[in-house]
Design a protein around this nucleic acid. Structure first.
Lengths: 242, 242
DNA sequence: TTGCAAAACATGTATATACAAGTTATACTA
DNA sequence: TAGTATAACTTGTATATACATGTTTTGCAA
């Protein structure tokens, strides 16, 4: 990593998480930091703005940068994080079962959602996530074949995202997500341990590459008692000025 | 509004929403914009970064700023938006019933959550939101009395946030949120039209002022069939460099 | 015509300076 | 001593310049 403001960002983040500045809960001033890291104030400000965006600090005009206590709702699951990365982070004993892996040939109903031409093939994967012996999550993925030409059972069992990013060298940019609650389908009842729950939490995501190409539609279907979504939000000033 | 980059941000946002640049779905280049608005490129970049943060454009290195199509999941409900503002935006025929409004004196269980001293009073409001004739949402609010000294039935029926921001002139900064699914309580069953639903979606929020003071805890309890949460997320590069 | 190198153009990073605006500590005055 | 004005901090905004890096167009050469 050669970008100064990113290395400073990560260094500050590590120190925040290691509880340096515990007494004051304040970062050193921008001028102090620019001397500390031997760089300009603008570069420091870029690192600080990243910390603020991600909910680690709050900048207060005239005062300084206050460290935000994130122990309230523990850590955020926001952003785009794959199940594999999440399970690793939480150190959960988890298992993934590939229930279905097909190359949909044509006339399927996802051509519109994925914005591919009629007749273009689409990869479909259905996976069940097991945590502490219970089948909790059903993940249904649909990929544009132009970007993900090949999928194997092994890749799906490990981590599709790791495959996409390291092997295919595609860079994921952003996602539009929607969370709703539905009644379980026959498939949900068949594949998951629903234990009498009459609702299921569904996260639908459209995932785009860094160059704005749409490449994935995902439906993550969770048993309601195991679902949890943590978010950090800044107040949007609704008053459109001028 | 005197801040250049903010006026440019709002102007560009209006034009995006009015579908200027429809053919290319691209903004003019930073240099063109800096001439157009008679300002420096850095100021333009501040406005563009705001647009990118809020999910309106995606910047592509070497190419330009691509406008993100937000019609997929319609508009986002992310960020901190009050029910009043939301209902106004959606033009819903809605109604608010204040079911409870008390000044909790001491020994209540929310002293810890709101981080107030033992014995300090806390304002509590319970409100039911009705949409198209159905009682859908139960909003339970708890305010630190140091910041919100007085609440009336009229304020609660209209909009507490408008009161806080315009009358009390407090500036809301950010919130930590958690979304989970619970079984309905007796209170939920009593106050809402649950129609046999055996689950309820709960959004718990800790809301902070711009200077990081915690002033509100909120629980928004939704009937699952009427709940919907839309989000925009950027990929976090998990690989901690260096 | 095809292929490729170079130029032109796009955004990204780093630095410097100046001043505005909010907060806190200092020191002076009544 | 108490109050207040000032100075010394803090972050915020605006501008300019230089170069790095990625993309597209241009034009030359085979």
């Amino acid at each position: 990593m050669q970008k100064k403001y990113l290395t400073i960002y990560h260094d500050l983040l590590n120190k925040i998480q290691a509880n340096a500045w515990e007494e004051t809960a304040m970062l050193p001033s921008e001028n102090e930091l620019s001397i500390l890291y031997a760089t300009s104030r603008e570069t420091i400000r870029k690192a600080l703005n990243l910390l603020a965006q991600n909910g680690y600090i709050q900048k207060v005009h005239g005062k300084g940068s206050v460290i935000i206590n994130r122990n309230k709702f523990s850590f955020p699951v926001s952003g785009i994080v794959s199940f594999r990365e999440l399970a690793d982070k939480l150190d959960l004993s988890s298992k993934t079962y590939v229930e279905n892996l097909v190359r949909l040939e044509s006339g399927n109903s996802f051509e519109d959602t994925l914005e591919v031409d009629k007749g273009e093939p689409i990869w479909h994967v259905a996976r069940v996530r097991e945590m502490s012996g219970e089948r909790i999550i059903l993940d249904k993925d649909y990929f544009n074949e132009n970007y993900i030409p090949l999928l194997s059972k092994e890749i799906c069992e490990h981590s599709i995202y790791e495959y996409i990013e390291t092997k295919l060298e595609l860079v994921i940019g952003f996602a539009q997500k929607e969370i709703i609650v539905e009644e379980p389908t026959a498939e949900d009842r068949d594949l998951l341990d629903l234990e009498g729950f009459s609702n299921i939490v569904v996260i639908k995501s459209l995932v785009y590459l860094e160059d704005t190409r749409l490449f994935q539609y995902n439906e993550s279907r969770h048993r309601p008692d195991k679902f949890r979504f943590v978010d950090f939000a800044r107040r949007v000033k609704s008053g459109t000025p001028l």
